[in-house]
Amino acid sequence: MTPFLFTLVVLCISMGAGLVGSLLGIGGGLILIPVLTLGLGVDIRYAVGASIISVIATSSGAAAAYVRERMANMRVAMFLELATTAGALSGAFLSGLVGGRGVYLVFGAVMAYSALVMLKRMGAREEAPVPADALADRLGLHGSYWDEALGREVPYRVTRPVAGLGLMYVAGTVSGLLGIGSGALKVPAMDLAMRLPLKVSTATSNFMIGVTAAASAGVYFARGQIDPFIAGPVCVGVTLGAWLGSRHLMGRVNNTWLRGLFVVVLLWVAWEMLRKGWVS
């Protein structure tokens, strides 16, 4: 394979990852890293570096739209970014300590967990009243969003900000360690622990991911793990794919079917990653 062909292949795969990722509401990293490492033989440290850049690109692109529509809660995002950036820093340093094998093992475990979360989200969940929280009041975290289906502004209240902070630290650490956005960990933390509406959780998670990723990207850059030859085409491809997916494909595909297929793929890749970490 020549460098030119390699660039083209990486560009196409990244577009595919961005497209699928935008439809499923996850970043492309979870798909991209296995393909780059298992399929194209790229060193996992460079794959992680390329992925973290693509995470920033998709997050910033999507967040531009969410902020305009006021779907993302900027105060909740800012507050939780305290924990995600601290976590991302820890994770990026941890990745230098545990080495390639450890990264494979953690990656496999996170993928398997993400698959289970997506499987669970396919079912409905019960609605209980949101308990009052003094800190959430003090920080003014509550908000409202425009619901297109209902045709009115829907107010919501936020609870357990400290629990959210703790979970976000974990999500940030995983993100820094693996070079993924870890939206699959952030959304449940806001949705289940802090009780934000799912749409707001998804939008806010997207908004936050860029900052979390920038924190670990700084460490990766200084360490020389961001290789322009790999990260360049990945960055362009994922952004184009995500843009195409959110603009032109959203709503035209059957989400349940897609999710089901994706869960199967995730579980298979998790198995491959765990095996590679175990054997090597």
Binding site: G210, A217, A231
Partner: peptide, 22 residues
């Protein structure tokens, strides 16, 4: 490749500038 790298650095700077603007 240095132009590519400069582009990647701009990408990394975008969220930081967003926090600065906030």
């Amino acid at each position: 490749q240095s132009f590519v790298m400069a582009g990647l650095l701009v990408m990394m700077a975008v969220p930081v500038m967003r926090v600065g603007l906030s």
